[in-house]
Amino acid sequence: MTIGTYFLHRKSKSPLSQIAIDLHYLPSLEFFAAIAGAEELLVFPQDRYQRQSYLNRTRIRLANKVETLSIPIVGRRPRIPMEEVRIDYGQKWQAVHLRGIQSAYGKAPFFEFFFPYFHDIFESEEESLWRLNQKLLTVCLKLLRSPARITVAEEGRLSSEVFDIRGQIEPGRPFSERNFYHPVPYTQLFGVNFEPNLSILDLLFCAGPEAGRILQESAKKQ
C-alpha cells in the first residue's frame, strides 16, 4: 500500500486491515497514531536489529527533563535477527527503568491502575528483546482497548494491501518530518508546555480511558 492510499484510508475512516511494524520498546505516540484503526499488526522476528533505534529505547518525562530509557543488549553484533537479540540483565536495567517510571508517573491519575501490568512483565526477566517488546505491545493494545491483533509473520513479499512502516519511525529524525502523528495536547504531570511524542506510558498514566480517543485524533488524516 502506498503512502497516498494510506492517507486516503485515514481520510475516509475506512479500516486499515494490515500494517507491518517494528516491535519498539514501549512505543511512542507517533507509533500508535500510525497504527490507529489497524485490524492486524504484522511483526517479523527475522527483521534485523538496528542500533540507535526505538527497538530498545523509549522516552518519558521527569520533573525537570525528558529521559531516555534504554535496554542494554548482550554483545554489539550489528544486523542480527531481532529474535536473536538477548537482553543484558547483568546491568540491572529493570530497577533503573522501574524507578524512572515510578518517579515520572507515580502521582499520575491512572498510574495505580495500569502500572501493575508493566511491572509484572519487567519482573518476568524475558531474555529476548523481541519477545519482551511483543508482550509490552500486547498489554498496551489491551489497555488502549484496541481491536488490533498481533500476527507473527515470515519474511517474504507482502501483499499490496499491507502498509509497511518498518524502519520509518526512528529517533534520528523528528516526527514532524513524517506524516503519521499530529500532537493533540493532554494534561501531563510535569512542565508548563506540552511535550509531544513521549512513550505510550505518558498518555496511559496521564489520560487513562481517554488515551484511545486522543490517539485517534492524533492520527494525521491528509
Rank of each mutant, 00 (worst) to 15 (best):
E67N: 11
G90F: 03
Y6D: 01
F44C: 11
H182K: 11
S218Q: 01
I21E: 02
M82F: 12
V152Y: 07
F122P: 02
N197L: 03
E112Q: 13
Q18I: 07
T138N: 15
R178M: 03
F31A: 09
K11C: 06
S124H: 11
E195C: 09
P109M: 07
K11N: 12
A63N: 13
L158V: 08
K65W: 05
L16H: 01
F175V: 00
S12P: 06
L42H: 01
G75A: 11
Y25R: 03
E84Y: 08
T68L: 10
Y117T: 05
P185H: 09
Y49R: 02
N179K: 03
S160E: 08
R178E: 01
R51H: 08
E217P: 01
A33C: 07
K65V: 09
F31I: 06
A153S: 14
G172D: 05
L137C: 14
T151K: 13
R213N: 13
D88C: 05
I150E: 04
K11I: 07
A63R: 13
F32W: 05
R76C: 03
R131P: 04
P147F: 07
G212S: 15
T138G: 15
R173E: 08
E161D: 15
I71C: 04
Y181C: 00
Y105K: 03
A63T: 12
L201K: 10
V162M: 01
F32Q: 01
S199Q: 13
Y25S: 07
R76F: 04
L189H: 12
S124K: 14
I150P: 04
A20E: 00
R57D: 07
F113E: 11
F163R: 00
I87T: 01
R99T: 12
R166E: 06
H119P: 05
N179I: 00
T58E: 09
K220S: 12
S160G: 11
V96Q: 09
Q188T: 14
F163E: 00
E210Y: 10
P196Q: 07
K135T: 04
R61L: 08
L189N: 14
S128C: 10
A104T: 03
I200G: 01
K142Q: 15
G212A: 15
P109K: 10
E155R: 07
P15C: 04
C206I: 03
N133M: 15
Q216V: 07
H97A: 06
L62M: 12
Y117R: 09
A36I: 02
S53F: 10
L204T: 05
Y105N: 05
V139G: 11
E155V: 06
G172L: 01
E123L: 10
L55M: 10
E84K: 11
R178Q: 04
F122E: 05
N133Q: 14
Y54L: 05
I165Q: 00
E39Q: 12
T2G: 08
